[in-house]
Design a protein around this nucleic acid. Structure first.
Lengths: 344, 344
DNA sequence: CGTTAGCACTCTCGATGCTCGAGTGCTAAG
DNA sequence: CTTAGCACTCGAGCATCGAGAGTGCTAACG
């Protein structure tokens, strides 16, 4: 587990991972030597490789094929990577420019973030919309559509909008609805789910029904996984050679199809601080369906105002350096945008 | 092309397609005979098969492997299918029951329709939200979020909601915004894009800005492909044996990833009458990327009120009967829901 | 004239056996 | 500690080959 590695062993592990990520084929001592300029002979490398294999960081799938990293090997490697990597500044500029152009619309940010992540990492990207950590009532609008159906439009502090159709027991005309909306707007402004619920006694049956719905919606909005998860780059998963000829891609895609799984996944990222990038390699035991997949995740936003999550799902054999720095950078940009928009 | 087929030839074509869709392997005269009870010998079937091959409805990939349908063969077969097929009534009941439970929320219909289509057809499903054929202003709400940013919530006749962030040149307080909203609501009620635009002269600079935005949004909403296309069952595409070991799936998924393509595709379905199911087999020349894929499409809704499109994208080797009847049935259900909700 | 039995022919698929190359661990010498 | 050398292992790739399935054609039959 926590075995110490010599500097040379670390370098060799890094080179093997680099090479393996690049080619997808196990590599042997001689081949490694021929491609990189290491100051030692192939026999020495063989010895080091044997040590790394004993430590559980490398493995060989058959006796006479080269070595490739184990999941544990990737983890070790990534641990060293988390602190350092950064995106080249020209790419940063390119990305931030795109975001600058789209600053008007929250949904546009989300789409853009997913698109950038998918593009850069050549894997599938997942992004949730920023979401108020504590949903606060700002405004409602009640609109008679027809008969006994009423459309409730609820605006939260920060600009999130929820809509809901309400089926009343008896028809009510628009004038009465508008009156009610005005009274509720005056009374409920700035309150949270409980605060709205406590207003019920001072309203009539109709008002009670509406208030309950608002309160429910607010408290449901408190949970992280309220909105849909925006996905992009699903096809990238298939393009990857590791997946095209195996059925691991089917697993991955099926997971990406299931909102419940994704929500569980993204909720995992709730714990660490904003801006910290998390990497989950090969399911890590807990997610059995994620064999052969890795996930790079981060939370963005501003604690106390609104947060969201974004991440990349790709093959275990992934360019971690690039992906981690992209996720970190995009999450930073999104945080800025959220602070701009939500912090009054 | 329009060659006449004898009844027996039609039957044999049907059997071959049935068998091929089931097993995925070409089938020969003897094997066909052994699995179905046809009143003739294998030699006769061979003759008929030769005729069907000459007519371009069957083909053999090598001399000594059985026959399989050509795209043209599928088309002929499907043409005969379009009129007749219907879903078993117990499945109908099951589906309609699900829809009944979800009648409150338009987005929920869309999700459900996609889920049902994906499930039943074991392929990828595409559904657009119902969409007013002519967008009519119903109501707006202007909400100051912070500084010079204003949230515009626009409700269309029928209950569709659009939101937009407006950056003003100077800060405006909520009271003035509410006043303006009230004036616009009174003046613009029931108008379309042009109608709203014609109101501009009677408002001040701020009002003008808002009215223009409303008018723009209304006219943009007139185009079909306004909303996002909801997708489901993408993983199904990969499960299919025809796709798992080929790169056709990559094509398909890449297409499903591209909104623009899908919108073009769904706009194709604008022409025919609501309820008519369209089947596009193997790209039909026009869509080159759709080799090996077929699409079953239908429009739903009510002309003059609101319409949407839904469909299924799957492998050319698809159970057309089942898929067509599912698409027809779901589109019928959606039409009913739309009529219920939109026709006042 | 449509149908059928028989036959010679074709072609794919899977199994078998082979060599070649890359890679390893070990040992002994520098 | 490093390195050269060596014996050994094992998978990928290629050629060969027989079995099985399917075809088209011809000639006989009702």
């Amino acid at each position: 587990m926590g075995t110490e590695l010599s500097e040379r062993q670390g370098m060799i592990l890094g080179l093997i991972i680099h090479e393996y990520v690049d080619t997808g084929e196990p590599i042997g001592s001689k081949a490694l030597l021929s491609r990189y300029d290491i100051g030692v002979s192939s026999a020495t490398i063989r010895n080091e490789m044997a040590a790394l294999t004993r430590a559980g960081l490398l493995r060989q799938v058959h006796t006479s094929g080269g070595r490739m990293p184990t999941e544990e090997g990737y983890r070790f490697f990534v641990r060293g990577l988390l602190g350092e990597t950064e995106l080249p500044s020209d790419e940063k500029r390119l990305i931030s420019h795109q975001f600058y152009q789209a600053r008007a619309d929250v949904d546009e940010w989300v789409r853009l973030a997913a698109s950038v992540l998918a593009q850069q990492s050549q894997a599938a990207a997942l992004v949730t919309a920023p979401h108020a950590t504590r949903a606060i009532f700002k405004h409602i609008e009640l609109i008679a559509t027809h008969g006994r159906q009423v459309l409730l439009v609820l605006v939260l502090q920060g600009g999130e909008v929820r809509q809901h159709v309400l089926s009343l027991t008896e028809p009510v005309d628009q004038v009465r609805l508008s009156e009610l909306a005005e009274r509720i707007n005056a009374a409920a402004h700035g309150r949270d789910a409980d605060g709205v619920a406590s207003l019920v006694p001072s309203f009539d049956t109709l008002g009670e029904e509406v208030l309950r719905l608002i309160s429910d919606t607010l408290s449901r909005a408190d949970a992280l996984a309220a909105g849909e998860i925006h996905r992009d780059g699903l096809a990238n998963v298939l393009e990857h050679p590791d997946f095209t000829h195996s059925d691991a891609a089917r697993h991955a895609l099926r997971l990406l199809d299931e909102q419940t799984f994704l929500q569980e996944l993204l909720s995992r990222v709730l714990t660490p601080a904003i801006g910290n990038v998390q990497v989950v390699i090969g399911g890590e035991g807990a997610w059995d369906d994620l064999r052969d997949c890795s996930i790079v995740l981060a939370r963005y936003g501003a604690d106390g105002f609104a947060t969201g999550a974004l991440g990349v799902l790709g093959p275990t054999r992934m360019a971690y350096g690039r992906t981690i720095s992209t996720v970190r950078y995009v999450s930073g940009l999104m945080s800025e945008l959220v602070v701009d928009a939500f912090a009054t």
